[in-house]
């Protein structure tokens, strides 16, 4: 679409061909440089995969596929199974998404459907501010301020209340030894939720903004209230895009390192009790890398490779969904 509108002397047919061959050297060099810069993105992505994988081969050959997917992580005895950390990554990311998505979508609706531009703008600034607070500051606050407070005022009473209740007791009851911990799966999930809220909000807002005005007006003209219009028009139109935004948030939450490393408790465990300490993939890499060597280090790099593959898959699916739903909106 942009191609025919754009004045591109090199792209003209017929008599302009002579011009193409006469393009000055400087122009061609500039184009080559620009192309090289663009290709660098692809090169970096390929290099990441190749370089980190080649550093982790000794882990793969030491453990084999069956050894990698076990729960035993014992560097002293050369046992490097990744399942515990995979479990922690999935659990914390899912908690983060469950907490963050309703809030993010609600804020996006507030910004697009309720408030005028004048009031929406300062709110966008505030949400952006969330993204500027560095991950390590969230971690520091989570560890020193939030975790002890949450343990006293939320986790302990809740755990006491649901103790023995079938499903709730398994999730929110006291963990092994009858204790609840400040740094825990749940604390990590909460902190991650704050960190992914800006991106989920801004993507949802972009998607919701593509809903055709005429459809909204049609719904209002039929006498729909604002909420009925949102349910009847906005949600069906932007469903795909919002799913994509959620997946992108999930990818962010899985890879977020420093905040998780500080508040997850850093004790490997597979348990359904969300208020007990755990460990996840990025946290174990960053915490144990300094003291590692040989197969140990290779295993940590290998966990990095798994994390890379996981987040790339999630991102590819998410971006695909977002791109497709945006294209459909434009086509409609």
């Amino acid at each position: 679409m942009g191609r025919s509108q754009r004045a591109d002397p090199a792209g003209l047919a017929g008599s302009a061909r002579a011009l193409t061959q006469q393009r000055p050297l400087g122009d061609r060099i500039f184009q080559a440089l620009a192309l090289a810069a663009g290709l660098l993105v692809l090169a970096i992505l390929v290099l990441i995969a190749v370089a980190t994988t080649s550093q982790s081969t000794s882990w793969f050959s030491h453990e084999g596929i069956t050894g990698i997917f076990t729960t035993t992580w014992d560097p002293a005895h050369n046992k490097f199974g990744v399942l515990t950390f995979l479990y922690g990554t999935v659990v914390t990311a899912v908690i983060a998404v469950i907490l963050s998505v309703p809030v993010s979508v609600a804020i996006a609706l507030l910004l697009t459907e309720v408030l005028s531009y004048r009031w929406a703008r300062p709110i966008v600034y505030v949400i952006d501010l969330l993204a500027v607070v560095p991950s390590v500051v969230w971690g520091l606050w989570g560890l020193i301020v939030f975790a002890p407070w949450a343990q006293r005022t939320i986790y302990a009473p809740v755990a006491g209340a649901v103790k023995g209740v079938p499903i709730l007791g398994n999730l929110f009851g006291p963990g092994t030894g009858g204790v609840v911990s400040g740094p825990s799966f749940f604390t990590a999930g909460v902190i991650l939720a704050f960190m992914i809220t800006p991106i989920v909000t801004s993507l949802s807002r972009e998607v919701i903004a593509t809903v055709p005005v005429i459809d909204r007006e049609g719904a209002y003209a039929l006498g729909a209230t604002r909420w009925e219009m949102i349910r009847g028009v906005v949600f069906p139109h932007s469903q795909g895009g919002i799913v994509g935004a959620v997946l992108l948030g999930l990818g962010r939450a899985m890879g977020e390192t420093i905040a998780a490393a500080l508040v997850i408790g850093s004790i490997p465990a597979i348990t359904s009790h969300l208020f007990s300490t755990g460990y996840n993939m990025p946290a174990v890499i960053v915490n144990q890398f300094g003291e590692s060597s040989g197969v140990f280090r290779s295993a940590l790099l290998g966990i990095g490779v798994l994390l890379f593959v996981l987040t790339i898959i999630v991102n590819l699916i998410a971006r695909g969904i977002v791109a497709r739903s945006m294209a459909r909106q434009r086509g409609a």
Binding site: A51, T52, G251, G255, T257, P282, G304, I312
Partner: peptide, 15 residues
């Protein structure tokens, strides 16, 4: 480039 914005920062360090 869009996908690369989603690559966790820790991976860049390991790379």
């Amino acid at each position: 480039a869009d996908v690369m914005t989603g690559v966790p920062s820790i991976i860049m360090g390991l790379f």
